[in-house]
Amino acid sequence: MTLDAFYRAMAPMLEGTASPQVVIDTLGPTPSGAENLGFYSTLVERNHFKILFELFPILRALLLREHPGSWPKIVRQYRATHPATHWDPNRFAEHFSEHLRAMRERGALDHPIYEELADLVYLRQRVYSGHDLGPDAYDGRVVVRQYSHPTSDYYFALHEDPSAPLPQARPQVVFVYRHAQDHALHHFLPTAAGLAALARRQGITDLPPMFAALGEAQLEDADRALVEHGVFTPRAD
């Protein structure tokens, strides 16, 4: 038996698509028996469930509330369509929001809040430890999202009350960011001036028309407010 043959036979079992007996039939017997060999399939599945469980406890509870019994099926489908490929376990969750959206689009889920919560929670995790890239580290420390629902509000509402009713559609723009000084995670709901201030900090000069009426003083005020909230670091000048 070569190592290549070993890996070829083991992969399907570890991914839950082949039984341990198939491995034994291919590679030969193990003194430990098929049940102990198959325990590795259980362990790997457990690991993937654990990653998503620890990242998305609120979302899991919500899905189980609205769609009893749905979570294990959702996770198993996700494993099958989006196998983990990164050394960072949390990156396994990177496409979970897309997966939930795809389920909604084919009618298996009934509300966009699931995919939006998954996106928000994954962003929180990335922002919490994301590398600072630039002077204000926009790519690593601050992320802007527009959701179709008040997803940031609902995230906190569910923490207060797991029975909080599903929200009605109402667009919400949110900064998810790691505080520039104390590194704590925060959400901030920016005004138009706040969005323009962020764009200006990023060196974006070609702003959409909605920002055209904003004056310099408004942008400065918004910038100062965002510094106070720890979204930006104070400018060197």
Partner: peptide, 15 residues
């Protein structure tokens, strides 16, 4: 295996 991460410590054949 082949880019799929199992996030476990899996034993090799003792060869």
């Amino acid at each position: 295996i082949d880019g799929v991460a199992y996030h476990d410590l899996l034993p090799l054949p003792f060869t």
